[in-house]
Amino acid sequence: MPIEHVDAAADLAPLELKSTTEAIERHRTLLESTFGPTIIAEHGARDCDLGASCCTHCHLHLIPVPDPDAVVAAYREVGGAGQRLSGMDDLPAAATGAYLYLSIRPNEHLIWGARGFPRQFVRRVTARLHGIGDQYDWRDHPFHEAQQDTLRILRTAAVRPAA
Rank of each mutant, 00 (worst) to 15 (best):
P14M: 03
L15T: 14
L17D: 09
K18N: 11
T20L: 15
T21E: 14
T21H: 14
E25N: 11
R26N: 13
T29S: 13
T29R: 14
T29C: 12
T29A: 15
L30K: 10
L30P: 07
L31V: 09
E32K: 02
T34S: 12
T34I: 11
T34C: 12
F35Q: 07
P37M: 06
T38G: 05
T38H: 07
I40M: 15
I40G: 10
A41G: 11
A41W: 04
A41Y: 10
E42G: 10
E42C: 05
H43F: 09
D49N: 13
G51R: 02
A52P: 06
A52L: 00
S53E: 02
C54L: 12
C54W: 10
T56Q: 15
H57T: 05
H59V: 08
L60D: 05
L60W: 10
L60F: 03
H61S: 02
H61D: 00
L62R: 04
V65E: 04
P66W: 02
P66K: 00
D67H: 05
D69C: 08
D69E: 14
V71Y: 00
A73G: 00
A74F: 01
E77P: 02
G80E: 04
G80Y: 03
Q83C: 12
Q83K: 13
R84F: 06
L85F: 07
L85I: 05
S86I: 11
G87Y: 03
M88Y: 04
M88A: 11
D89C: 14
D89W: 11
P92V: 12
T96M: 12
G97V: 07
Y99N: 05
L100H: 04
L100R: 01
L100S: 08
L102V: 00
I104Q: 04
R105C: 03
R105V: 02
L110D: 06
G113W: 04
A114V: 08
G116K: 06
F117Q: 07
R119M: 10
R119A: 13
F121Q: 05
V122K: 03
V125P: 00
T126V: 01
T126N: 06
T126F: 05
L129A: 04
G131V: 05
I132T: 09
G133Q: 03
G133Y: 01
D134V: 09
Q135K: 09
